[in-house]
Simulated assay, not measured.
Amino acid sequence: MTSLARDWLSPPRPALPAVVEDERERRRIKLELLIVFSITLGLSGARSLVSLLNSLLQPTPLSKQQVALNAPQEALDLLDLLAQLLSVVQLIGWGALGGYLLYRGGIKLASVGLTWRGKDALWGVGLAALIGIPGLALYFAAWKLGFNLAVAPSTLDGTWWRPIVLVLSAFGNAFAEEMLVIGFLLTRLRQLAFRENSAVLAAAVLRGSYHLYQGFGGFVGNLVMGLVFGRIWQRTTRLWPLIVAHTILDVVSFVGYSLLKGHLSVLP
């Protein structure tokens, strides 16, 4: 095995952030993790598990059931727009909470990759292609085999604001997930002396858990995405390429589905 392959498969732990030795501070970090994820993506994971169990208990097979990712929240058009925008604000707030807690804990946001570089966009596009094409194939395979629900990325009607909201929602999802699951969680696990492989696996399982409402394919696909994204961050400490890639994946999924629904019979 070459040194390059070994560094990617079993990377050494970086010197920074330093492992926290003080027991009181370690308890504070653990409590912080518990609180943050109990009100954000960890809670979403628990709800997704309940949703999947409910789907499995239905007489209808999983592949015959449908779940919408972006659905109307209010009956009146203007109120629905406001509700959709508030959902985006919540997602960005979740990500900002993780960043703020790192900053208050003495971690510079630049050290987790939240400084923009010119190549971040290009890396993001390439990473989106790397993840998106196999991910789409996995989804369709899981759906056809009966392991996944039919996922409708958007059931919003043809209002003028639909594309804008879908793009903002894509960014909100990307910022919240990558900031919390990668930048925040992996940094805190390093401070708690987790091994790099153990940490990236834990983060990937968390990412998969809050997609369980889609079915087993949604869990596996996002687990793999989490392993790839987590390892790239561990090796590069660049967060923006992950946010860009995730945003592109969701924009293509949300907006593309809205434009192609009714024109391609393969779409649910």
Rank of each mutant, 00 (worst) to 15 (best):
V228N: 08
T159G: 05
A174E: 00
M1H: 13
V167N: 07
S169D: 13
L223G: 10
Q66H: 09
G215L: 14
A137T: 07
S154G: 03
T187P: 10
D7S: 14
L53Y: 09
I164W: 04
V252R: 04
I133T: 12
L9W: 12
G215C: 14
T236M: 02
A152E: 12
R238N: 02
K108L: 07
A170K: 00
G221M: 05
F219Q: 07
G98F: 01
V244A: 01
K30D: 09
G256E: 09
L114Q: 00
G95V: 03
R207T: 08
G221A: 09
Y100W: 11
S55D: 08
F184T: 00
L166Y: 08
L138H: 09
V181A: 07
L168K: 09
N222I: 11
L102E: 01
W161Y: 14
L267M: 13
A141I: 07
S44F: 09
A5P: 15
D7E: 14
W240M: 10
P11G: 00
W123V: 07
L259Y: 08
G45M: 04
Q90K: 10
L79C: 10
G262L: 07
A141D: 15
L16F: 13
L206G: 01
D157M: 12
I131R: 02
Y257V: 05
P61E: 10
S3H: 05
N54P: 07
L212Y: 00
M1I: 15
V67H: 10
A174W: 02
G262P: 05
G172Q: 05
S258G: 13
G126A: 10
A193G: 11
L136G: 14
S48W: 03
L52M: 04
L186P: 03
E23A: 15
G124P: 10
T155S: 06
R235W: 06
V20I: 15
Y139W: 12
Y210E: 02
P11D: 01
L41C: 08
L264C: 09
M179A: 15
V50Y: 11
I107E: 10
G118N: 03
E178K: 01
L166R: 10
F216D: 03
A71D: 13
G158D: 14
L180G: 05
I232D: 04
V88R: 00
L52S: 02
A71S: 09
L239K: 12
V205T: 14
G226M: 07
I248C: 15
V224C: 02
G126W: 06
G126N: 08
L168A: 15
S3P: 03
A193F: 12
S51M: 15
F216E: 04
P17F: 06
L31D: 13
D7T: 15
A137G: 06
E32I: 12
F229E: 06
K108W: 05
G118P: 02
T40L: 05
L9I: 14
E21I: 09
G42D: 14
I232N: 04
G98I: 02
R188V: 14
L16N: 13
A83R: 08
Y100K: 05
F229N: 03
V220T: 03
E178L: 05
Q191M: 07
Q90E: 11
G132F: 00
S51C: 13
R117H: 08
R231C: 03
V244F: 01
L34R: 01
A142I: 03
